[in-house]
Amino acid sequence: MSTKTTLNSLNAYEISQQLRNDGLVVAVGPFVFCIKSSLASIANNVQRIYGDFQLLSHHDLIDFYVSIKKPKGLRRFIKPQINFYCDDYSPFLPLPASQAFPLLEWGMNWCIAQHAHHHLLLHSAVLEKNGKSVILPAQSGSGKSTLCALLALNGWRLLSDEMALIDLKSNQLHALARPISLKNESINIIQQQNCETIFGEIVDDTNKGTISHLKPSKVSVQQVENTVAPYAIVFPKYQAKQPIQVNATDKATAFMGVIENSFNYSILAEAGFKAVSQLIDSTQCHTLTYSSTEEVLAFFEELAH
């Protein structure tokens, strides 16, 4: 087993001090983040959820310097708000301070989506079992994250709940093993699963309900450096009270479906076209509609055999 130092080697005080001072340097799959924040909720969540991640230092190469800060000026007294920064740049509007950790997670996704153009990046969950990987590209509202969490709790290795990283040179999938973001009743569904789950703080987003993050399994994080060849692409759609239905997708449709769910296909131009062609050639493609957890788990179980 690996002898890498993880965040678990630090106690709560040490984590919050590093976050507060020069920043906590942590490996997230192929990327290295330096995270800075003086907010207690960030320190809490990071300790709870990122414990198995590899701890690095400022003497390592760092991809992204991210921070969550309170804005300067009068506003912070009126209604406490926080900003995400990628280095000196803040790409988003400020959010209520209670959403600090979700904002950090979104911000880290943003960094990868904006800069990691040596990968084809898909808005997609990715999991692997028995060396067989499934890519689940989906738009919002398809139930992708819930499905991803269900699979991750049933023997599948989590590569990512939000983003597929396909190496343009090797065509292999890279893993991030980041926490899975869940909303509203999804949190209950996952908590009702008959297995041990660790969640971050549950945050009330006044507009949209609640949000929380499921800690990735230790095994998934330990195997984060193992790349895997793409095996299947499944376009999932949750449809209440419907029996499971799986259809083979014709390749041209799958091609366009992959493009639609890509963060950087158009920026990659020719390299993107070649990567998607190669991806479609090497995978089986399905569309899936489902409502029952048992049925959908059985389908994926069979896929992995």
């Binding site: 014709d250 390749k251 041209a252 091609f255 020719e270 076209f273 070649k274 062609s277």
Partner: peptide, 11 residues
């Protein structure tokens, strides 16, 4: 132009 041929369609 770059093309990729499938059964009834071409990308």
């Amino acid at each position: 132009l770059l093309t990729k041929h499938y059964d009834e369609h071409v990308i």
